[in-house]
């Protein structure tokens, strides 16, 4: 690359949460000064990679760098989001940016959290099609355009964890309250015209914790990088549970 003239560069003060449990007793924030070319709107992930060139020991997850794999859920200036599709211009305030791991989950190292609880809750909702419709391996189970449209806004979840780790109910009861991501997934199968296990699924959700711990705070909706609406899905499940109880 050609050298960029000084006038086209601004310096970003980046604070990164650092923690290696084998080496440090407590986490700390480490500051980096990163030169940012102004003609391009870099993403937060780009900036993290620039910091990693200065200090290769910084650990964070990344894969697709285009917002579809769900690797880099981070807490960016206090709000959860994906590093790779969050433009600096949206989040950096007076050239300052601080990046922490997703809140509420155990930290393995630096920006890497242990996703086990999150994935366990996902697995609990039987996240796969259960159907007793005649399955002929020579054809598709029929579904109309309208029936299929009911899955829009549900199936696109990338399991990034931004929502559940922004949800106070999940922080307090991560083993009992399923959390927005798992509940969205539960509803994705309830809403699928091909799935015939609605009764079984609802039965599993009817206890006091699994669903009803959601108080509609909507944190999940405001952070979802895919624009999904777990609160609405949870509302639909609640409605079905109430109707069923009558």
């Amino acid at each position: 690359m050609n050298a960029i003239a000084a006038s086209e560069i601004k310096t970003l003060r980046l604070s990164i949460y650092r923690y290696d449990p084998l080496k440090q007793e407590k986490p700390y924030m480490q500051d980096f000064d990163i030169d940012i070319p102004t003609e391009k709107d870099l993403m937060v992930l780009d900036v993290l990679m620039l910091a990693k060139e200065q200090d290769p020991s910084i650990s964070f997850r990344r894969s697709c760098r285009e917002g579809v794999c769900g690797s880099d859920g981070l807490n960016i200036n206090g709000k959860n989001g994906l590093g790779c599709i969050t433009p600096l211009s949206d989040v950096a305030k007076s050239n300052k940016l601080s990046i922490r791991p997703l809140p509420g989950l155990p930290v393995i190292k630096d920006l890497i959290v242990d996703m086990k609880q999150f994935v366990d809750q996902y697995k609990k909702v039987k996240p796969y099609l259960i159907t007793d419709k005649k399955v002929d391996t020579r054809e598709a189970i029929p579904q109309t355009i309208e029936e299929r449209e009911k899955l829009d806004g549900l199936y696109e979840c990338i399991m990034c964890g931004c929502c559940s780790t922004a949800c106070p109910s999940f922080w307090w009861n991560p083993d009992k309250f399923l959390g927005p991501a798992a509940l969205l997934q539960a509803y994705r199968f309830i809403a699928d015209s091909r799935d015939t296990a609605t009764e079984e699924r609802l039965e599993q959700l009817e206890d006091a914790f699994s669903v009803f711990r959601c108080h509609g705070i909507m944190n999940c909706v405001s952070v979802c990088p895919k624009g999904l609406n777990p609160t609405k899905a949870i509302g639909e499940i609640k409605k079905m549970l109430v109707k069923r109880a009558l």
Binding site: Y128, T131, A140, I141, Q143, T144, R148, L151, D192, R194
Partner: peptide, 23 residues
Amino acid sequence: GPEAIFELENMGLPFSRTEEGKI
């Protein structure tokens, strides 16, 4: 190929649909 596609659909893959309810 077709058998593998239908297997995936039967597993739950949310393909877009045609007016006739096909993939």
